[in-house]
Design a protein around this nucleic acid. Structure first.
Length: 215
DNA sequence: ATGACGATTTACT
DNA sequence: GTAAATCGTCATA
């Protein structure tokens, strides 16, 4: 019996508006392959769209273009990883067109491969007692900085081309035997309270009630 | 050179 | 619920 190779996302698939990409990525699989060959992966279950120069909540608001956010101006399918709060990394997928600084923040994954390794990278107990509430893996990748820690994503992955890299890419879920996802709902984005009217726009996409969603 | 703050997480009262 | 952790980035000088 022979299984189809998972299909990898191409440039054309990334090249769309950020809300459309944010919605389209839900249910697809982010894959990280470490230097030693360890494969870490998770199904994307929460994203946020950032709309570029007019979006007060975006790093590229007003056309700001610096060394930090330069990757936002790159081609669709490039990664934008930034460091914040003196200790956290967040991972985005650039979309739109070249020189159009729009991107999608990946906010949560449902871990599917390399879970033991992720526990180590997150500094969580190797095992947790079965039974009690919730399942112990809900702190693994349920937030933009948590998933970066679990997937070993940091500034070395900034500017990586997801269409060509062998260390970081997105796969279609076809062939995987995963539970069907629930309904996708839209809410305001997290952590952008101070962005006026833009704080209220429903640019967060999340699988309703998913145990690995943030917050 | 200096200061304010951040697309967050964690620990603690 | 509130606050600390912790430092790169950006605006101002």
């Amino acid at each position: 019996m022979r299984f189809a190779m998972p299909r990898r996302w191409t440039r054309d698939e990334f090249a769309r508006s950020s809300p459309r990409l944010a919605r389209a990525l839900i249910g697809h699989v982010l894959v990280r392959v470490l230097a030693d060959g360890t494969r870490l992966a998770g199904r994307i279950i929460e994203t946020e769209a950032y709309l570029g120069v007019r979006d007060r909540a975006a790093h590229s608001f007003g056309g700001l273009r610096t060394a930090r956010n330069e990757a936002m101006y790159a081609a669709p399918g490039i990664s934008y990883v930034y460091f914040t709060y003196g200790m956290h990394h967040c991972f985005n997928v650039v979309c739109g067109e070249v020189d159009e600084p729009v991107a999608v923040l990946i906010r949560a994954l449902e871990p599917t491969e390399g879970i033991e390794a992720m526990r180590r990278f997150r500094g969580l107990p190797r095992r947790r007692r079965e039974g009690s509430r919730g399942g112990g893996d809900t702190l693994l990748t349920s937030g933009p900085a948590r998933l970066c820690q679990a997937m070993r994503i940091d500034r070395r992955q900034n500017g990586v081309d997801l269409c060509r890299s062998s260390e970081l890419f997105v796969e279609h879920p076809g062939g995987l035997s995963l539970e069907p996802l629930g309904r996708v709902v839209r809410t305001p984005r997290v952590g952008v309270e101070r962005s006026g009217e833009w704080a209220l726009k429903p640019y967060r996409f999340v699988v309703e009630g998913h145990p690995h969603a943030s917050r």
